[in-house]
């Protein structure tokens, strides 16, 4: 019987959602293949979420050490590659998160096993895993095969799978010793820093008027600000608007910004990249205005308007005055 590995991600004593999402998918794969599900936890001493993981796996391999409390690619790679060599898991799932992106490619070179990144689905055909990926800003999907190997590595996109637990697993927790030959890390953790706080809190708003790169230039932000005020909502934005310094960081919605849960989210000139959309899964109703009828935002919005955003902004302002 084969095995599937899930490398769980955690930070500051908290299990991250992506871990549960990977475990959900791994459970589905294991059920189809009659494989066992092994979660791998590399962390500090007595991480508080071990049970949360055990409920979702057949086995939890735990390697604990102060040096592993914060993520470190050199150390994680060292430990994981020897676990993979020993267990030969059919697939090892890792997150397509900043940490996963730092780890998975180096693990692939180190072990020689093929890697497919940023998978939104994983299929098994004729006993081989296939990755389903989104490319060209989500306008095209691709199905990708991996070179024949004993083990396959895949990273999983956030929010691609539900984080739900599945009944009936009560994994055994197995503590392993830290390998004696751990390498000297070439990168050292210093500290975390919170860059997200600011003058307004978009996470509490009932109504968000959100602007994307489609706004074109800094001067065009003003009419949207006025609209947000007229509507009694708050102004939020996508990442490029922050990157270009058109608005401060605390307005940003998405994986590297804030997750928001307004009753209504109005998206103007936002294409709908997954890193953005992952921040609005909690929104009640999404209304998107975009010139491009094929923009992926229309796949997640409840209502869509295919038009120049400024036509709609002006018309809304007129109706409100």
């Amino acid at each position: 019987m084969g095995e599937i590995f899930v490398l769980v991600e955690h930070r500051q004593g908290v299990l991250r959602d992506i871990s549960c999402e990977m475990l959900w998918k791994a459970n589905e794969l294991c059920t189809g293949l009659s494989h066992t599900l092994t979660a791998v936890l590399l962390g500090g001493k007595d991480e508080p979420f071990v049970n949360e993981i055990a409920e979702r796996a057949d086995k939890v391999l735990v390697v604990e050490d102060d040096r592993l409390e914060a993520f470190n690619a050199d150390l994680y790679k060292g430990i994981l590659s020897s676990l993979i060599q020993e267990h030969k898991p059919f697939i090892t799932l890792m997150p397509q998160s900043p940490w996963g992106m730092d780890l998975a490619p180096s693990l692939s070179v180190k072990t020689g096993f093929p890697l497919a990144t940023d998978c939104v689905d994983i299929l098994v055909e004729d006993g081989k895993p296939k990755a389903v990926r989104q490319i060209y800003n989500g306008k095209i999907f691709s199905k990708v095969a991996l070179r024949d190997a004993d083990c396959y590595l895949m990273t999983v996109r956030a929010s691609a799978f539900p984080p739900d637990a599945v009944e009936g697993r009560a994994g055994e927790v197995v503590k392993l010793d830290v390998p004696a030959d751990l390498p000297e890390p070439r990168r050292e953790f210093v500290k975390f820093e919170d860059a997200g706080a600011g003058a307004v809190d978009i996470t509490q708003a009932d109504l968000l008027v959100s602007v994307g790169r489609g706004v074109g230039e800094a001067d065009n932000i003003e009419p949207l600000k006025e609209l947000a005020e007229k509507m009694g909502g708050l102004l939020s934005c996508s990442r490029p608007v922050v990157d270009k310094h058109w608005l401060p960081k605390y307005h940003q919605v998405g994986t590297s910004g804030k997750s928001v849960k307004p009753k209504v989210y109005l998206a103007f000139g936002i294409s709908g990249a997954f890193q953005h959309v992952a921040g609005i899964t909690g929104a009640g109703t999404v209304i998107a205005v975009n010139k491009d009828k094929k923009a992926p935002i229309f796949r997640v919005a409840n209502y869509g308007i295919v038009d120049d955003m400024f036509n709609v902004v002006e018309a809304l302002k007129e109706q409100l005055s």
Partner: peptide
Amino acid sequence: LEGGMDEL
């Protein structure tokens, strides 16, 4: 990192 968090 995610959610407005940086790692130094």
